[in-house]
Design a protein around this nucleic acid. Structure first.
Length: 551
DNA sequence: TTAGGGTTAG
């Protein structure tokens, strides 16, 4: 057996797992003098793109450096290196330009264009894609089903559904993937009716069309029509893990954890996405204990948690507030190469540590971040705020502005809450004005409720009342509720009665308001009034739900 | 005489 066929067999059968394996393969190629052998180099580049860590800049760079040493790469090799660079639009375009300038013997073909169009599609290269469409027409490769399908997908993804449809209608040959791409195009615009029409027109909707069925299930789930989603799901000729996950996610988001769990138990296979759909359902529906149990069960089934699963676990832990659990989760995240440089992951970790009482760790994580975005700042500001360090929280908000970040509605809610908790009246008023005047944001009823709470707690009951009355938006009960809480704090019966009167009108069936007013009376030893209120509550069958805060 | 492509879930 020659060294060439030995290396060929090895490259075909082996699966490189790390860059070390790639280096070893590369060494064999050099040792046997095959650096110019198209087939061997092509197989090597395929190994690079099939590596677990792909897309990875180091590896594509490695593949490119080896490709560049080949003096006359053939079309196979060009297509292979282009495929490796699908994640980068500029590199793909520059490679294509080199390829396209070669003599007639080596020219771009249908394979070249399907990679190139996919690259435009995932990188939102709108005009590049249109330009390539023109070249496709000129070179005459539009007839290839892969090229046409890529174009349908591209126009669908950039929202030009008319162009997608035109390409689709003019395709001389379509297969199940082309039909699916067209269905998905309509769905991504939320046009369920057109998607359904195309889906119903599909010539064959057998097991090979599972992706189209799944897309329809997901489309119905996304628009909140769970009954139709279920109907499509039940009609499917064959279901895979994606089918189950779409519907599990739908039930979980609608709060129907029983149906979600039932489907999950029936799924033939359960990968990390399916598990995460269920776990995040438990988190979002306030059942954090169950979420943690499921996470542990997932690990026992040897399903490795990824970033999404870890974010769910961290949110569950924040809800539980257990410092022991937080410590374990924190060390798990750190040990298992979860990418903490991604702001939303770090933000969740900071939030968890703050809510579980480890402010030092939260601060440390925050300061060590190479880059801090709005979400990260908000987690930290909120963390400081719930730990009673309102002044520091407000300072951090200023630092965020100095870093040039532009606060949104959520950021203002966070900073106003911090001011309110710490009694920072002037700062709170300043931020409310700045929100309107400097950032052109319209304060919501929640923002106003924060300020009412702030003024009320500081004893400025009249100012708080005037603010509610002058609000340009309809006040929520929460603003009046905050004021009633302040009346109780400052034992102000006159105001308390008036505010409670407003609240009884707004939410006549909320017992907390009656309880608050009755506490105000009790504090002033007005027991007759207390009794009268309690009677009113009994008559209206209102009972305070145990464990729910009054304030 | 061998190598390569487009669609679905958080």
């Amino acid at each position: 057996m020659s060294s060439l066929s030995r290396l060929y067999a090895f490259l075909k059968s082996s699966k490189a797992k790390t860059i070390i394996h790639l280096n070893q393969l590369h060494a064999h190629i050099i040792k046997n003098g095959l650096e110019q052998h198209d087939l061997i180099i092509n197989l090597f580049i395929s190994r690079c793109t099939k590596l677990d860590a792909h897309p990875n800049h180091t590896i594509t760079h490695y593949a490119l450096s080896i490709f560049n040493l080949v003096v006359h790469p053939n079309a196979h090799l060009w297509n292979s290196i282009l495929k490796a660079h699908i994640p980068s639009l500029p590199i793909s375009i520059s490679l294509f330009n080199r390829f396209n300038k070669l003599p007639k013997t080596t020219t771009p073909d249908d394979y070249t264009f399907s990679s190139l169009i996919k690259c435009c599609s995932i990188n939102n290269g709108v005009w590049e894609g249109r330009l390539i469409h023109g070249l496709v027409l000129r070179i005459g490769v539009l007839g290839f089903v892969f090229v046409g399908t890529s174009l349908v997908d591209f126009y669908g993804k950039i929202g030009e559904i008319g162009s997608a449809r035109k390409v689709f209608d003019e395709m001389p040959e379509r297969n199940v993937v082309s039909w699916t791409a067209m269905v998905v195009g309509y769905l991504s615009l939320g046009d369920l009716r057109s998607a359904r029409v195309v889906f119903d027109e599909m010539p064959l909707r057998d097991c090979a069309a599972t992706a189209a069925w799944n897309a329809m299930v997901d489309g119905y789930v996304k628009c909140g029509d769970l009954d139709s989603a279920r109907k499509v799901f039940d009609e499917m000729p064959e279901r895979n893990v994606v089918s189950f996950t779409c519907l599990i996610d739908g039930y979980a988001k609608a709060g129907d954890m029983e149906s979600a769990r039932d489907l999950f138990d029936r799924a033939p296979r359960r990968d990390v996405v399916a598990w995460s759909a269920l776990i995040s359902g438990y988190v979002q529906n306030g059942n954090a204990d169950r979420a943690v149990e499921m996470f542990v069960e997932m690990c026992k089934e040897n399903v490795k948690p990824d970033e999404f699963a870890m974010v769910n676990l961290m949110s569950a832990c924040s809800q539980i507030g257990s410092s022991d659990l937080a410590l374990w989760v924190d060390s798990y995240v750190t040990r298992n190469s979860i990418d903490l440089s991604r702001p939303h992951i770090a933000a969740t970790l900071i939030d968890m540590n703050a809510k579980c009482g480890n402010m030092d760790r939260a601060t440390c994580l925050f300061e060590e971040m190479p880059k801090r975005d709005l979400v990260l700042y908000c987690s930290m500001i909120q963390g400081l705020s719930i730990h009673g360090r309102g002044a520091l929280a407000v300072q951090l908000f200023s630092r965020m502005l100095e870093e040039g970040l532009v606060p949104d509605e959520v950021a203002f809610t966070v900073v106003l809450t911090a001011c309110s908790r710490a009694g920072l009246v002037e700062e709170g008023m300043h931020h409310l004005c700045s929100m309107k005047n400097d950032y052109g944001l319209v304060p919501s009823p929640d923002h106003y409720a924060c300020i009412v709470d702030l003024l009320g707690r500081a004893g400025h009951l009249e100012a708080a009342y005037e603010l509610i009355e002058s609000m340009p938006v309809e006040p929520h009960a929460s603003a009046w509720g905050a004021l009633l809480g302040a009346c109780r704090l400052h034992c102000n019966i006159k105001f308390g009665e008036m505010v409670a009167g407003k609240l009884f009108q707004l939410e006549p069936r909320n017992p907390s308001n009656y309880v608050l007013l009755s506490n105000i009376y009790a504090n002033a030893n007005r027991w007759t009034d207390v009794l009268e209120l309690r009677n009113r509550m009994r008559e209206g069958c209102l009972r305070k739900i145990p464990g729910q805060s009054w304030i």
